[in-house]
Design a binder for these strands. Sequence first.
DNA 1: GAGCTTGTTGCGCAAGTGTATAAATAGCCC
DNA 2: GGGCTATTTATACACTTGCGCAACAAGCTC
Lengths: 225, 225
Amino acid sequence: MPDAADSAPMNAPSRRRFRREGEERRRQDLIEATLDSVAERGLQGATLRTIALRAGVTAGLIRHYFPGKEELLQEAYAALMGRMTEQAKAALAMEDASPRQRLAAFVTANLNVPIIDARVFSLWATFIGRAGADPSLARAHREGYLGFRNEVEAVVAEVLAAERREPDASQLRHHAIAINAIIDGLWIEGCLAGEMFSPGELAAIGIKTVEAELGLAPLKQFQEK
Amino acid sequence: MPDAADSAPMNAPSRRRFRREGEERRRQDLIEATLDSVAERGLQGATLRTIALRAGVTAGLIRHYFPGKEELLQEAYAALMGRMTEQAKAALAMEDASPRQRLAAFVTANLNVPIIDARVFSLWATFIGRAGADPSLARAHREGYLGFRNEVEAVVAEVLAAERREPDASQLRHHAIAINAIIDGLWIEGCLAGEMFSPGELAAIGIKTVEAELGLAPLKQFQEK
DNA sequence: GAGCTTGTTGCGCAAGTGTATAAATAGCCC
DNA sequence: GGGCTATTTATACACTTGCGCAACAAGCTC
């Protein structure tokens, strides 16, 4: 029925009701809707109309807050990266803990929810797949990666110092690269096929592997039961 | 000059010249053009016209070989996965070598060109990013991953047997998961930021880390100089 | 409440998309 | 060489896309 009059008294074209929101709130909602759309349908499925529908607004409004779709996607990716690295580093913030405990907590945090998450992985993969062609994406990744690796390297240095070992810079770098790879690799496995692993299994494997890499004797207290 | 007559005598609308190719050859070319397009511009940029242009044909021809774009993309992904796993497993085919040497060769092969490659990584990430929403992609990955991990587990079993150690099934599984993660993680680092590592450095780190995971004493012969 | 600002809608547009189909021609068979 | 067939081109079509723009109204100020 093309000429339908909605439930309102049939006179005016009856525009859609709306609420004015604060700028920051709207931008946040639009970015979140963008990430949802990309995670669910990929970059090709994330159209302005889809995003707007999800955010509860009409497509035209997006242009009021972002110069274009390109910029919206860039901001969404930046927000994603920021959240990921923030969560990851948060696990290192334990003040009163031995370096060894902080390292184990770091590994554990990175190999459990919410960091192990299919949606986040989907987003990461979708965006990172464009890094080869998009220099701004590549740079964003590089910075995030190096920041992450430097954190790892710092903790490793503390751990080894506590063991009275004195690795040189090259060894430290290699340890950081290897540990970073272990976490990344297990993270991917967990995100892609989480149900193949029992709860805590990936974290336990991660800790054991990291300890083997650093040549540490196992501690009982961090092994999952 | 909009009304250009090409080098031919100016009379006919002069259709584009073409050559008939064998079916297999055309399908192959179209799949390769598809992978190139996806790697360069992502799934959204891989339009039928772009793909056809790259393959040196017109867009309509694609429908003569594939039911639709969806099927073309699926076949392209299958071809990519097949190539990746084939290359990876090839390194294990050394007949006259110790298990330990084969494991090291496997790690080395997976952490050097052509497996370390920005284009392949871009393709992998782009497709795998859709795995969360596309069950057929998820299944294809799962199978590839398990096949890969089983190969790793088999070699690990041989290596440990040669050392007269007798791991149970659970330990074997954990070793395989960990080693798989190490290779995956280093692979990503190499693909995304290859120039941050000196040639052979990633392979050397990989071998050292794997040996540490398995509790093996280092061998000199596989350390890059 | 009147008036004003501006966040928000609704609609139109040109470009580009995948698909459908008719017309042409390359290359094999005789 | 002449026909035949099916590969290939070319064009059309319905639809979606990002973007531009004018009208509208939500909610503040007075």
